[in-house]
Simulated scan of single mutants.
Amino acid sequence: MKRNLFITLAGLLASIGLQAQQPLTHTQHGQLRTVVNPAASLMHLGGEVSVIGRRQWVGIEGAPTVFWGSGHLGFGGIRATAGLNIRHESLAVEKLTEASAFFAKSVRISESEYLGLSMNAGFSYLDGRFSQLDPMDPAFREDIRETDALVGFGVMLYRPDRYYVGLSLPRLMLGNLGLTGDSRYQFTNSYHLTAGALFPLGTDFQFRPSLLVTYSESLRPQAEVSAMFFVKEVFGIGVNVRSYGELAGMAQFNFGGFGLGYSYQFNPGNQPLNRRINNTTHEIGLSYRFGRDMGLL
């Protein structure tokens, strides 16, 4: 049963061109940026805690599931932040856990613009229980339990409450995690380009576009664009478009320092896999910002 499940998932990955499965990115990157580029924490010196969950291929057991968590504290006197990023990802009998601590510092380069730099360090742990698939099949008997250190960096140019542009390498692998064995994960360095802005539309409406471009040595570059419209900074609705054809509808509520987001992603070019399995992805995010810095950007 579990062996058939893994073969099914492997076939799905192959059918959409993901022979080497990199950790997934979330569609709500315009709101939760620190997990992609820790330097983005400098835009909220009051501190912030956020968590986001993503579930793909609803209806199939063992489908990709990812949870991100991030939190940081600010030191306004020196315009610096320190925090922690955590991710847990599962795919069939494989599980990946990552944790890294970061420190970021910004310097003023003009009257209203800042340049931020961040460094992070942590570990990745890959656990593949292939022996659970079929104990009598030698091809699936070797389990994988690997731990590797990681370091990363980020840089961001920003103007508070107006715009930001950033480049990050959050995972510079120091070993060969996932490069051998039967693992579907093959980790190589992944680079992220992020950008976003906030435009007021009168006194009650705001428009927030954002961009995320991901490049990896083992995968085709992926680009995605999001556009959100807000009413009185309380309720927002928008769309996300990815270069591989996925579309997502998004909604966000802001209340009392909390931000609650939801997205529903699908690929209109793919047919449902069967009556129980479809190509949709659900994503829920929750964040809380401390202090008085409650802006949309």
Rank of each mutant, 00 (worst) to 15 (best):
E142Y: 11
V225K: 08
L179E: 06
F199Y: 14
D182E: 09
G154A: 03
Q186D: 12
T203I: 07
Y125R: 04
M119S: 13
A104S: 07
F199N: 09
Y164W: 11
S100T: 13
R108Q: 13
M136K: 14
G116C: 06
T188R: 06
R108H: 09
L193Q: 07
R159V: 04
Q186W: 08
Y191F: 13
R208Q: 10
L174A: 10
S131N: 14
D182Y: 03
Q206G: 06
G181R: 04
E113S: 15
F199G: 07
A227S: 15
E142L: 13
L157V: 05
A139I: 08
M228Q: 08
G152Y: 02
L211A: 06
A149W: 06
P209F: 07
D182K: 07
Y125I: 05
V213N: 08
D182G: 06
F230D: 00
R220T: 14
L150V: 11
S210P: 10
L167D: 01
D134E: 12
E224N: 13
Y158P: 03
M136H: 15
V165N: 05
S218D: 10
E224L: 15
L133T: 01
F102N: 01
L174D: 07
V107D: 04
G178S: 03
E111Q: 15
E146V: 06
Q132Y: 11
G116L: 00
S106L: 05
G128F: 00
D127K: 07
L193S: 08
